[in-house]
Design a protein around this nucleic acid. Sequence first.
DNA 1: AAACAGTGTTTCATATAATGAAACGTTTTA
DNA 2: TAAAACGTTTCATTATATGAAACACTGTTT
Lengths: 253, 253
Amino acid sequence: MNEDVKDLNLSVVKAFTLLDAFTMDKQEWGVRELALKKGYNKSTTYRLLNTLESLGVLQKNDNDKYLLGLKLFELGNLVAIHKTLRKYSRTPLENIAREIKETVHFGVLDKNQVLYLNKTESPQGLKVSTQIGSYQKAYCTAIGKVLLAFLPEQKITNYLKAVSLDACTANTITDGEALQKELQKIRAQEYALDMEELELGLICIAMPVYNNKRQVIASISVSGPSSRFKLENIENYISIIKKGAQAIEASMH
Amino acid sequence: MNEDVKDLNLSVVKAFTLLDAFTMDKQEWGVRELALKKGYNKSTTYRLLNTLESLGVLQKNDNDKYLLGLKLFELGNLVAIHKTLRKYSRTPLENIAREIKETVHFGVLDKNQVLYLNKTESPQGLKVSTQIGSYQKAYCTAIGKVLLAFLPEQKITNYLKAVSLDACTANTITDGEALQKELQKIRAQEYALDMEELELGLICIAMPVYNNKRQVIASISVSGPSSRFKLENIENYISIIKKGAQAIEASMH
DNA sequence: AAACAGTGTTTCATATAATGAAACGTTTTA
DNA sequence: TAAAACGTTTCATTATATGAAACACTGTTT
């Protein structure tokens, strides 16, 4: 909305603002409700949606409601950045999931958040389910803490300045200095734990993935309910995840 | 450009027209070259690209060139339609690829073309490689012919009216009546062959995937070089593909 | 060292094209 | 039957996208 007054094309901004309303939780929108939600005029909204539909960016449901269209699927699959990472992470993630039988995630840091690039879901009924392409807070997830830990010091400082460490549960680290200490520990042990810091009952363990210059470029995490996730298994989990990380690293060299 | 004069928002149309220039073959664009390519004014192009960048739809390279951005990755992963199909096709496709050791594709019909929703690549060096989310002609691919064959008769007629059957190789079926006969044969035998009709040296075999109303909603194909693809194996391939198709069907019920 | 060709970027007067209140035509609900 | 919801169209208004030209910068060529 209130951008840097950078001479942007307002129609295009509006169009993508409308698209942002389409989420996992609300996949369909009618003209009026979307106009109301975004505070745009009915006519404007109608014409923008109409335009987006004619481009294949949206498509109409049976109910005359709009849905995200296949043009976005097409464009999304062309996004070059991280594409290689996604491709090479697939098999290793599946191997980890097969051994540990919990949901495995693969992500990178983008705009101070964790961006999930890939996943393999646990075969069990009770499991974590995250949307590929979605973002999550970095400071209270195992995967995010790994990615933060191996950032250059200046960038960690910037992160702490930019982000407010809100509590998600009673376990969330909400103090900057405490987080710094935690990151230091993670660098030393080369893995991170999330002990119900994002969500009660949810425990994760994450490890870094390196490029050939030994920079951390991504992270793998395993997530499961606290009822199944016993601390005595951690050593075992670590060696399995490590193997997966190395497989990804090898395929990129 | 010359749409149905449907009162579209031209800026939005232009924005997506610019995005269409980003393909697998050309992933980066500068302002001037893109303006030239699309016939837009430099300033207009500059501002549109700028707008798209500020939205995360594009991002800048080191060279000041633009690349498709993560916003599109995010949106692409939210496209609901066919998402279920993609999810449930993954494991069966991998099983087929493991047994046959050739590239396996999974697609649907969209706008008179085959839309590739998923794939598993052959482990062998010489292999077919298709872009997920990309489109291909239906009439000269095995997967496309299966999808056409099980369309309602009226829709087949419409297809033949709308599409011109251009020859891709000497084997391409370019005659409407001949294609009708071919589709009839495919319906009877429940599989389609592409005997180098799209590309010389490339042979494919495809079979339908049904929903619980016994309508064909998607198709699986196996593609390989004619040097490896022997006709005496077809019976074997068919039973393997069939098993995969049934696995997908079962998981959707 | 100077001129040149290539970028991306900014300016500003102009006219095009997006805008929104209101009216319209359907369908769904009361 | 009325009312309320929806998507859609109209049309005068003015806000906003436009493009030629100038600008700033970079790397290359003379």
